[in-house]
Structures are given as structure tokens and as C-alpha cells.
């Protein structure tokens, strides 16, 4: 038995998401409910709204507030080489296959502020594949894309990134790839020569290219099952037969409808391979 207040709040959240969709064409309607409730509550406090309906009213009438809210909703601060074991597994099990293609296309879906894209570019560079690779880095948040393209990260985090990088099988020193600038570090421009940063929504857009690897880590956790199925369906359609899909290490294909289209390559690192046509 849920109390009426909780029912009302959920109703207000649904209305707000509908309003955001109609007004701004961002579709959060199939985002995971628990996370949405939590962020809505935080947003109400942050923007001084007593009710979700008040927040909805302001969002409809103040586009600037919406863009603040979008940062709030979608920006996930990640780490470079987060879960080093994942990148090590890419080096050991995926790179040897990618090497057999004359040109390689990769898709980092939901790249947010870009930590993973830059990590992948470094990995490809060290494997001698960056020159013939094209990385699509996509996100719904254009501000995050801008930040990602800037390749500038907080100096306070760099020690942790270096440690991750070493543990991921890095062949040099992470310091070889960046220069310091005030309280940040800026990664070598030449690494992003073959990265295309683009606005793309896993909720509403379709497949835009054929690729050999999709890396989409800790993005699906924010989706409900229906939207997870949609996103994984896009990945399946985008991947060549035998192409690879990498997920976050607590994400799984087993609860979704496309489980049969993939087989695990490195199960504990959530790296899969497309087997269906």
C-alpha cells in the first residue's frame, strides 16, 4: 500500500518528464524511476521549488533553467581508465581482432565528459591503431560533449587516472599524453584527430554507422528495461557480425530481450560479442 503523497509525487514526475519531452524534445520518460525520484528531489531543493509541479512550471518557462537541469540529470563524472581490468581485457581480447580490419570504427555511447573516450584513444594509439580508427563519441548533452572535446581534466584526479592507466596495461606514462594548465591537465590534441563528438540520443535516435566496437559503460543503469532494450537493440544493429559490446561491470545483458544476440567474451569485464546476423 503506497501512501497518497508518494503516488502524487510519481504522477508529478511523469507529468514533468512529458512536459520536458514536448517542450525540449529530451526524452527521459523511460529512465529508471528510482534515480529520477532522487534527482528530482535534489533538483527541487537546488532550485528552491516546493513541489515537482513548481519545478515543471519553471522548466517550461525558463529554458536556461532547463539547461542547468540537463547538466544535473545527465552528467556523470567518470574516471579515465575506470575499472582498469576492462581496458586490459580490451587490449588482450578485442584489439587483436580489431587489428584485422583495414579501418576501424568505434562508438562510445553516452560519453558524458569524455574520460572514457580519451582513455580509448590512448589505448588505440599505443596499439598502433589510432591512425586507422574513427571513434564516435556521442551524448545527449551538448555541454558535456564540449567538455569532452576539450580534453581537459581536473589535476586533482590525475594521480588516480595514472594509477588506473598503469593497471590497465598502459605502455608508457600517462604524463606523456598531457600538459599541465593551471589547475587542470590538457590531453594531446593529436589524440582526438579521429574522434567525432556528436549529439545522439539512445532514447530517440537511430543507428548512424556500422561499427566494430560499442563501449557503453554505466549508461544503461539509468534506463528502465524497455529503454535498455532499445539501446542494446541499436548496438546490435550498429555492430558488424562478431563486433564487440562493452558494458559497465555491474551491467548485464541477461535481463534484456537481446541476450541471445550476444555471447560473452570476457564475462567478468562485461565484454560481449555479437553472434546474431
Amino acid at each position: 500500500m503506497r501512501d497518497q503523497e508518494a503516488e502524487l509525487r510519481d504522477l508529478e514526475i511523469r507529468l514533468l518528464l512529458e512536459a520536458v519531452y514536448l517542450r525540449y524534445h529530451y526524452d527521459f520518460r523511460d529512465y529508471a524511476t528510482a534515480s529520477l525520484r532522487r534527482r528530482m528531489t535534489q533538483a527541487m531543493m537546488k532550485f528552491g521549488c516546493a513541489r515537482i509541479s513548481d519545478l515543471q512550471h519553471r522548466l517550461l518557462h525558463e529554458p536556461a533553467l532547463f539547461s542547468q537541469m540537463l547538466q544535473y540529470f545527465t552528467v556523470q563524472v567518470s574516471e579515465m581508465f575506470r575499472d582498469p581490468g576492462y581496458f586490459l581485457a580490451l587490449r588482450q581480447h578485442v584489439i587483436p581482432v580489431l587489428r584485422t580490419y583495414p579501418s576501424i570504427k568505434l562508438w562510445v555511447a553516452g560519453c558524458s565528459s569524455g574520460e572514457e573516450v580519451w582513455s580509448l584513444a590512448i589505448l588505440l594509439h599505443e596499439e598502433g591503431l589510432l591512425e586507422r580508427s574513427l571513434i564516435y563519441a556521442t551524448d545527449i548533452n551538448t555541454e558535456a560533449l564540449k567538455a569532452a572535446a576539450g580534453g581537459r581534466f581536473d589535476v586533482a584526479n590525475v594521480a588516480g587516472y595514472s594509477k588506473n592507466y598503469q593497471a590497465s596495461g598502459g605502455k608508457a606514462s600517462l604524463g606523456d599524453y598531457y600538459t599541465s594548465a593551471y589547475d587542470g591537465v590538457i590531453f594531446d590534441r593529436s589524440l582526438k584527430k579521429n574522434i567525432v563528438f556528436a549529439d545522439h540520443s539512445l532514447s530517440t535516435d537511430s543507428v548512424f554507422s556500422e561499427v566494430q566496437l560499442v563501449s557503453c559503460r554505466n549508461v544503461l543503469i539509468y534506463f528502465n528495461r524497455a529503454l535498455q532494450d532499445r539501446a542494446v537493440g541499436l548496438f546490435r544493429d550498429a555492430l558488424v557480425r562478431g563486433g564487440f559490446l562493452g558494458l559497465g561491470n555491474k551491467e548485464s545483458l541477461q535481463f534484456g530481450t537481446h541476450a541471445d544476440a550476444f555471447e560473452p567474451v570476457v564475462r567478468e569485464q562485461r565484454i560481449y560479442r555479437k553472434i546474431a546476423p
Binding site: A32, A34, S35, R38, S78, I221, Y222, K250
Partner: peptide, 20 residues
């Protein structure tokens, strides 16, 4: 809950993780 993720109750039948 796994390390480095929040664990949330999504509905009566499932949990969801988050990196908030």
C-alpha cells in the same frame, strides 16, 4: 550493494544501480 555504486529499489521486483 556492489562497491562504488549506489543501490536503489527501482520497483517491487528489481533494484537499479547508480553512479550518482
Amino acid at each position: 550493494a556492489p562497491p562504488d555504486y549506489h543501490m536503489l529499489v527501482e520497483d517491487e521486483a528489481s533494484v537499479a544501480l547508480s553512479l550518482d
